[in-house]
Amino acid sequence: MNTIKRTLGIIWLLLAFAAAYFCVFEFGLPKLFSDNQEDLVFGIIILFILTPLIVAGLGIFGYFAIKGEYDLEKM
């Protein structure tokens, strides 16, 4: 079970990198440089509020899973 948790930790880190890419380059920057006012607000929210929360959450969870913090022997 601990091997599965560590493998899933790697997957969480890969999801963090994928989320960072998509939030910045697919959702944030195109909306930020759009001429529409609603797109500008949405781009700012995506880039400066949601992207750090999503990436940090996935990254921290994956890091601790790889380090073995969720192993059954530690409990």
Score class of each variant (00 low, 15 high):
2 N>I: 04
4 I>W: 01
4 I>M: 04
7 T>D: 08
8 L>N: 01
10 I>M: 12
10 I>Q: 12
11 I>N: 09
11 I>V: 15
13 L>P: 04
13 L>M: 10
13 L>Y: 09
17 F>L: 14
17 F>D: 03
18 A>H: 11
18 A>K: 14
18 A>M: 14
19 A>L: 05
21 Y>K: 09
22 F>N: 07
22 F>I: 15
23 C>Y: 13
24 V>I: 15
25 F>W: 13
27 F>S: 07
27 F>P: 09
28 G>F: 02
30 P>S: 01
30 P>A: 00
31 K>G: 00
31 K>W: 06
32 L>T: 12
33 F>G: 06
34 S>N: 03
37 Q>C: 11
38 E>G: 14
38 E>R: 12
39 D>T: 06
39 D>W: 00
40 L>R: 01
40 L>H: 04
41 V>Q: 06
43 G>Y: 00
46 I>C: 06
47 L>W: 00
48 F>S: 02
49 I>D: 00
49 I>F: 09
50 L>T: 05
51 T>P: 00
51 T>Y: 00
52 P>V: 00
52 P>Y: 01
52 P>A: 00
53 L>Q: 08
53 L>Y: 02
55 V>K: 03
57 G>H: 01
58 L>M: 14
59 G>T: 11
61 F>W: 13
61 F>L: 15
62 G>Q: 08
62 G>C: 05
62 G>F: 08
63 Y>A: 15
64 F>D: 08
64 F>T: 11
64 F>M: 13
64 F>H: 12
65 A>C: 11
67 K>P: 11
68 G>L: 02
70 Y>F: 14
70 Y>P: 07
70 Y>W: 09
70 Y>M: 10
72 L>Q: 07
72 L>C: 05
73 E>A: 15
74 K>L: 13
